[in-house]
């Protein structure tokens, strides 16, 4: 079965560097904590979105990377509404799960918070992107031991072939024990980069491991 999907653009955030289509866009001091780093990127992007500061770190990462990608790709609101989102990671929401567990571990100091609990789901990252960009398309969150280019490619093809979506936002957004990696790419018929397992794996490796 043939399809004509191509990569429109891709973005990565890792080791205090934000890169767009493989070119560093924002580079920050390595001594910054993620909280400081994310705030600086937020400022640099001139965002005005107070909800950002209520989010857990994984959602902050998702919001920043999707903002950069959508600043770069101009899509009208009608087409944007139908974008499908296919995200993945290794740790699901464990970074926040551990924080929530601490709030219920001690019976003398028991303070479960709905504001923390709601972030104990990996697909909240998709939900936050959808709210920010008014996207109502197809959603799925996959968990895998490592970035699975094959699965993301196959599933994006399924969504396109089954006429569920013409544009699919795919990627890997992981925040675990203060280590973070984000890699996001949009595929559609209109991109100019080849879309197959090899090409995705290649740009993922270049962006996640090289800087």
């Amino acid at each position: 079965m043939k399809n004509n999907l191509n990569i429109v653009a891709y973005c990565s955030i890792k080791n205090h560097v934000v890169a767009l289509n493989g070119i560093p866009l924002i580079t920050k001091d390595h001594d910054l904590t993620f909280s400081e780093f994310s705030k600086e990127v937020y400022k640099e992007l001139k965002m005005d979105y107070s909800k950002f500061f209520k989010m857990d770190d994984q959602c902050k990462l998702a919001i920043l990377i999707s903002e950069i990608l959508f600043n770069h790709i101009k899509i009208d609101s009608k087409n944007k509404e139908n974008i499908a989102i296919v995200l993945s990671n290794r740790s699901a929401s464990l970074n926040t799960d551990r924080k929530y567990q601490e709030t219920i571990s001690n019976k003398e100091n028991y303070y479960p918070s709905p504001a923390v609990f709601v972030y104990t789901l990996p697909n909240i990252t998709i939900g936050e992107i959808c709210i920010k960009h008014k996207i109502k398309g197809e959603n799925v969150f996959f968990v895998s031991e490592a970035f699975n280019a094959t699965l993301l490619k196959q599933y994006a093809s399924c969504l396109f072939q089954n006429k569920k979506s013409k544009q699919i936002l795919c990627g890997w957004i992981d925040f675990d024990d203060d280590q973070y990696q984000a890699f996001l790419y949009l595929v559609s018929e209109h991109g100019n980069r080849k879309f197959n397992q090899k090409s995705i794996k290649k740009i993922y490796n270049e962006n996640i491991w090289m800087h």
Binding site: M1, A92, L121, P122, N123, I124, N139, V140, F141, F142, V143, S144, E145, N148, L151, Q154, Y155, S157, C158, L159, Q161, N162
Partner: peptide, 26 residues
């Protein structure tokens, strides 16, 4: 390798859609 779906309370039914789509597309 397993295909794992963790998508809150729709995970179970979404897994049916995911499996069906992957099989449909061969």
């Amino acid at each position: 390798e397993p295909i794992i779906i963790s998508n809150a309370c729709v995970s179970g039914i979404l897994s049916v859609a995911v499996a069906k789509r992957l099989i449909q597309n061969n």
